[in-house]
């Protein structure tokens, strides 16, 4: 187990290193680093001073070393637009993105599980067919367009929900959260539903497949034969067993939800990390872009690592297989 752990962590570190090299090459080698890292408003003297300060006169491998050491110290440059450390900007926006992603995940479970359960129990029913057709739409509709349609219907025509921004926020643990105020929740509803759409479809399909498989199991037949009520069989014997894989997959999807919030945040002008990166790309605020990419890469590798380690703890086959090779 320890061998596997060490190997897996080493592997993750290697990927981090590789990704940092890719980001470095992307910024320093493909583009012109002077143009990328120094504000276009700077004059000649400022420019030269910055070139020296950033070490851009050094050979490329030394520059990479400087970039790495600074990154390890949490210094990923300063934003041109906000004139603040890029990392700090991103961390400030993170709570907004996280609460949106968690909100979407909860919505996906609340809507997806019952629908999937129904479709699994009555696979030939008319309503089940409607649910499954709907889930295909959920997979193929572009998120941003659905977001626009939500705004059109609920904000413009019906006027029920606000279309942009975060609304009032409450303070918890020194951070601002929208879900603590009624106004904030109203603002969060549409973006969270929009972000949840894809995941609702996923949960429906997983739950349906799980239910159909579980219904054929011997222990379900036995529970029925014992004369338990159908409700008890469904919710205790079937539902509990399919919950584990569904929750695992949804947890795994959290990373991609955070990534896809780029689109939702842009549509609803939700001030999270995703909106920040799109704005930064549009005004070429490159330090922020670099910082965002490094952060998200780290997050992904961390999530993948945690998942792999958890699996290897739960499933001994994974451990044994890696020992064999």
């Amino acid at each position: 187990m320890t061998v596997y752990l060490v190997r897996r962590i080493l592997q993750a570190l290697l990927v981090v290193l590789a990704m940092s090299l890719i980001v470095f090459i992307g910024v320093y080698a493909i583009g012109d680093p002077v143009e990328i890292l120094i504000s276009p408003d700077a004059d000649q003297i400022e420019r030269e001073r910055a070139v020296q300060a950033l070490g851009l006169d050094l050979p490329l491998w030394q520059q990479y070393a400087v970039f790495l050491t600074k990154a390890l110290q949490g210094d990923l440059g300063r934003s041109f637009v906000y004139n603040e450390p890029a990392l700090k900007l991103i961390l400030q926006r993170m709570p907004a993105t996280l609460e949106l992603a968690f909100g979407a995940t909860i919505i996906a479970l609340i809507i997806g599980l019952p629908l999937g359960l129904y479709a699994g129990l009555r696979p030939e029913g008319r309503f089940s067919r409607v649910i499954m057709a709907g889930s295909i739409l959920g997979f193929s509709l572009p998120t941003f367009w659905v977001g626009l349609m939500l705004i059109m219907v609920f904000a413009v025509y019906l006027g029920w929900l606000p279309s942009t921004g975060r609304g009032d926020t409450g303070t918890l643990l020194g951070l601002q959260w929208s879900f603590l105020t009624w106004d904030g929740i109203r603002h969060m509803t549409m973006p969270a539903i929009n972000l949840a759409l894809f995941k609702i479809s996923l949960v429906i399909r997983l739950t349906r497949a799980g239910v159909r498989e579980t219904m054929l199991m011997d222990y379900v037949k036995f529970a029925r034969a014992k004369g338990l009520s159908p409700a008890r069989v469904t919710f205790v014997h079937v539902f509990k067993n399919i919950l584990i894989p569904v929750v695992t997959v949804v947890g795994l999807e959290l990373g991609s939800t955070i990534a896809f919030s780029v689109v939702t945040e842009s549509v609803f002008a939700w001030p999270g990390m995703g909106k920040l990166i799109i704005d930064s790309i549009n005004v070429l605020d490159r330090p922020v872009i670099v910082a965002y990419l490094m952060m998200i890469v780290l997050m992904f590798i961390a999530i993948n690592l945690i998942v792999d380690l958890t699996y290897s703890m739960l499933d001994p086959r994974v451990r044994l297989e890696s020992k064999g090779t």
Binding site: G26, V27, G31, G255, I281, L293, I296, F300, N304
Partner: peptide, 17 residues
Amino acid sequence: LQLSFPTILAALMILAF
């Protein structure tokens, strides 16, 4: 490696460069 990153993120990264 490619499949472990969401498509939108990879595309953003490439377009940012």
